Amino acid sequence: MAAAAAAGAGPEMVRGQVFDVGPRYTNLSYIGEGAYGMVCSAYDNVNKVRVAIKKISPFEHQTYCQRTLREIKILLRFRHENIIGINDIIRAPTIEQMKDVYIVQDLMETDLYKLLKTQHLSNDHICYFLYQILRGLKYIHSANVLHRDLKPSNLLLNTTCDLKICDFGLARVADPDHDHTGFLTEYVATRWYRAPEIMLNSKGYTKSIDIWSVGCILAEMLSNRPIFPGKHYLDQLNHILGILGSPSQEDLNCIINLKARNYLLSLPHKNKVPWNRLFPNADSKALDLLDKMLTFNPHKRIEVEQALAHPYLEQYYDPSDEPIAEAPFKFDMELDDLPKEKLKELIFEETARFQPGYRS
C-alpha cells in the first residue's frame, strides 16, 4: 500500500510507478496490472468513496492506442447498470505532455475469474450472474457493438453480487458484411471463450460470437473449470467437437473457408456428449439454455433477447427493466489503419471533457 500523499506533496508512487492523480484522489492501494497499465484503488475526496484507477501508458504502440481509444469512446457513450462506466479521466493539459491516461471507475471487490478459483456457486448465484451478463449484453448488442472478449476476468463483482462487464478494448461495431482481413492475426481474445466460426472463417462476425462466450462462462460457473481449455488453435476446435459432436452437413455448409471445411470433413465422426453427463448436478433449465448458447452453427445460436426470456431466468426476466441503447454506435473511421500519432490526438480530444474549465 502506498503511503497517503500529504496535501501538495506531488504524485504518489505505487510499486515504483508514478500515479499522478492528486489532489482529488489519494490513499492509493495496488490492485493489479494488465498488459499496459496498473490498477489501484484510491480515495475520492470529492465523492467520499474509494474508486478504481487504471493507469494506461499506450502511446508507444499502435495496438494499445487503438484499444484505449475504443474503450474510452464506447464506455463514455454507454450507460447501463451492468456495464462499468467511466467516472473521470485524468491526463496532462497538453498533448505533448500526455504520456499516461488515468481512467477512474467504480471500485468492484472482485471478478468472476477470482471468485470461481475459490468458491463453488449455488444455482441461485449462477442464475443471477447469468441474468446480469445477458442484461448488459442486450444493451451492448442493441448499440450494434460486439464485445468480443467476454470471459470471467472481464466480469466485475461486488459483495452485493452486482455484476458489471468491463474491458471493451477489443470491441467492434457489428459488421457481418465487412471482410476484416487479418482478423485472426489481430484477434487476441482469450482462445477458450472463442466461437468456432472465428477459427473457421475470417469473413465478418456477428453478435452470436458473444453468446458463445457467455455459454462458455455459464459452463464454467457450473463446474469451476473452463469447458474448452484448448492449448492452441486446432486443439481448441477438437475440444469443442469432442463435446458438441461432429457438425451436420448443414452446419458445414455455413463454413465459407474450404480449407477449414475440408479439415472438419477429414475428422472421424464424434457423438455429442449429453450435458447432464458433463454437469450431473446442474439445473435442467440451465443445461437447456447452455445447449442453445453453445450451438456450433452461429445462425442457430440463441440471441440475447431470447436467452433473457428463457425459463431458467424467469424469476428475473423483465423486458421493461432491460434497457437498450438510445442509438446504434458508430465509429467515424476504422481505427485499425491509423498511425499511433493520430490515435493519440483522438484520445486527447475524447478525454477533453474531463479537463478543468472544459467548454463543449
Rank of each mutant, 00 (worst) to 15 (best):
T351H: 02
D336W: 10
C166N: 11
A325K: 02
L237Y: 10
E96H: 00
H147V: 03
P152Q: 08
S29I: 13
S213D: 10
R191K: 06
G37T: 15
D283Y: 14
G22L: 04
L155A: 02
M13T: 06
T206L: 09
F78S: 10
N144T: 13
R79G: 08
P274R: 09
L287C: 02
R172S: 08
Y233C: 01
I302H: 06
N27Q: 00
L200V: 12
A42Y: 03
E326F: 02
Y233M: 12
K48T: 11
A7Y: 05
V51Y: 09
E186Q: 08
D235K: 07
A307K: 01
Q306C: 00
K292D: 09
H239F: 07
S208P: 03
H180G: 10
D332W: 05
T68H: 13
F78L: 14
P323Y: 01
I347C: 10
A307Y: 03
V104Y: 10
W275M: 10
R353A: 06
T295L: 07
P339N: 07
G16H: 10
A4E: 01
R91M: 00
N27E: 01
H299S: 05
L76C: 08
D100Y: 14
R67D: 11
I74N: 15
F168D: 02
S284L: 11
I103Y: 15
A171T: 13
D162L: 06
L237P: 11
N27G: 10
P152N: 08
L346S: 08
D175Q: 06
V21A: 00
G10V: 15
L121I: 04
R91E: 03
L338Y: 06
S213Q: 07
K207C: 12
Q355R: 02
G357L: 10
L313I: 03
E33G: 12
I95H: 08
K292M: 14
V18H: 04
F228L: 14
G230C: 14
H178V: 08
D100A: 14
I209R: 09
I302F: 15
I72C: 02
E60V: 13
V51M: 11
P356D: 05
F279S: 10
S122K: 02
V188G: 13
I243V: 03
R301S: 14
H239A: 06
R70A: 10
Q315P: 06
C65N: 09
Y64M: 15
N297A: 03
K292S: 06
F228C: 00
F329E: 02
I347F: 15
D288P: 01
I324L: 13
Y30T: 02
I86S: 13
E220I: 07
R172T: 01
I209Y: 12
W212I: 06
I133G: 02
E349T: 06
A309G: 07
P247E: 01
N45D: 07
N201Y: 14
R277L: 11
D291S: 02
F19V: 14
Q236L: 14
D177L: 09
T295D: 01
V104L: 11
